[in-house]
């Protein structure tokens, strides 16, 4: 699965995982399995010297409470402007330009509109397997109290959909998924993020 890694730079990639709360461990495990170094990020200072950042699933309202402290939101805003960042579920909500149900603050970096909890409550959580734009056949997608991407801007590329709505999108150096690739054994989505970082360098 890991052929592209031969094109990497002279040192292994260091990927930050925002670890305020949520599925940060599962992402770190997925990254480690792909041969890169995962670094947990809990303070603005820890954003230094990383090649990319994953904002995991969890509760976006909880993330925002921490980001409101110590200038974290400003630091993260500048970071995602220039550095590859991948948001899953709550992370996608944080990256989105607009958030609905309810409206809330975000980094407004990725030109999408996201509706929170749009597929219902936990009882409506589901695992789907469907073809996507990724090579290698159908992709398993784990949706947990998932948000819905209701609008994508002109420069946003849709890589996977559910019922006609985008669930995996890319815009330049930013990637977002409303499902949880860290909860599947398939490494293709994490690999896609690493390729995005390497191809940029």
């Amino acid at each position: 699965m890991n052929h592209q890694s031969t094109t990497r730079q002279d040192r292994p990639l260091i990927i930050g995982v925002l670890a305020l709360q949520g599925a940060f461990e599962a992402h770190a495990t997925a990254l480690t399995a792909l041969g890169v170094t995962a670094k947990l990020v809990r303070t603005p200072a820890e954003l230094a010297n990383i090649d990319g950042l994953i904002i995991p699933g969890g509760e976006s309202t909880t993330f925002l409470k921490f980001l409101e402290r110590d200038g974290f939101l400003d630091a993260l805003e500048s970071f995602v402007e220039t550095t590859p960042t991948f948001g899953t579920c709550a992370g996608a909500i944080l990256l989105a330009k607009n958030v609905e149900n309810p409206a809330q603050t975000s980094l407004a970096a990725l030109d999408i509109t996201v509706e929170r909890n749009a597929y219902g409550r936990q009882i409506d959580s589901t695992i789907l397997t469907a073809p996507t734009e990724l090579p290698g056949g159908p992709l398993e997608m784990v949706f947990i109290r998932a948000p819905r991407i209701t609008r994508t801007g002109p420069s946003v590329e849709t890589l996977a959909t559910r019922d006609g709505f985008p669930v995996l999108v890319r815009e330049g150096h930013l990637l977002a998924a409303t499902f949880h690739p860290e909860l599947s054994n398939d490494s293709r989505v994490h690999q896609l993020f690493l390729d995005l970082i390497r191809n940029r360098a």
Partner: peptide, 8 residues
């Protein structure tokens, strides 16, 4: 999966 989201 939901339990994972509640960690930390």
């Amino acid at each position: 999966g939901l339990a994972e989201m509640l960690k930390g």
